[in-house]
Amino acid sequence: MALITCQNAAFAYEGNTAVSNLNFAVHRGDYLCIVGENGSGKSTLIKGLLGLKVPQSGSVWMGDGLQPNKIGYLPQQTAAQKDFPASAYEVILSGRLGTRGILPFYSRVDKKIAEKNIKRLDIGNLRGRCYRELSGGQQQRVLLARALCAAEKMLLLDEPVAGLDPVVTRELYRLIEKINHETNITVIMVSHDIHSAVKYASHILHLQNTQVFFGKTKDYVQSEVGNRFLGITRRQESGGEAGGGEGSD
């Protein structure tokens, strides 16, 4: 049974349909990359998958015990976070909040899960450090650990490599790939970086306010739309105009 199934789904942003005609399914262990240009409806779709937006039409099903609040979400960073005085541990532990319900404090189990994810991402040395003093890559690792604290089955990453330098970008991609392989956790990633997307993802969903392509990555590379998009970004990059193409070779 699929974790997420979209059938003819459409989502609106401030009353206007942002993305429509969505027909895709995500299965356990998949690594799906959602690609498309700015304003193609990626962020709106993410809100829909997180249950923060109801579909305008069509339907979104969750199976296999998945619930919107059990998805480990890694949002784009906000300006306020850049100078936020919090230790990495406080941030990571806050990933457990969704499981607490109305209970006010964290339990020993919550702390154990936080420790487990700290170990998994090898960031024990960052635990007591102040979040605002970490480098961009370290901050993303901390946020990834927080996302893992919230999720058993699925991670949803919104442009996790935006603003990172090529070396750190590659490390983060490897880390995400490792988590995906070792624990069979499903990964959905929104990315501008199409070249890394086709390199790491098992499936691609290409949006252009409607679904232009959904399928296996190897089919996408062969497809006309995929070729065109890969070609366009490659040309833009050589012209030095790429939007978020860091880290691609």
């Binding site: 949002p75 976070q81 806050s94 909040l97 949803l156």
Partner: peptide, 13 residues
């Protein structure tokens, strides 16, 4: 704390 640090994440959970 969660709402102050990251409203979107808190909302999603």
């Amino acid at each position: 704390f969660a709402v102050t640090f990251d409203e979107t994440f808190a909302q999603a959970t």
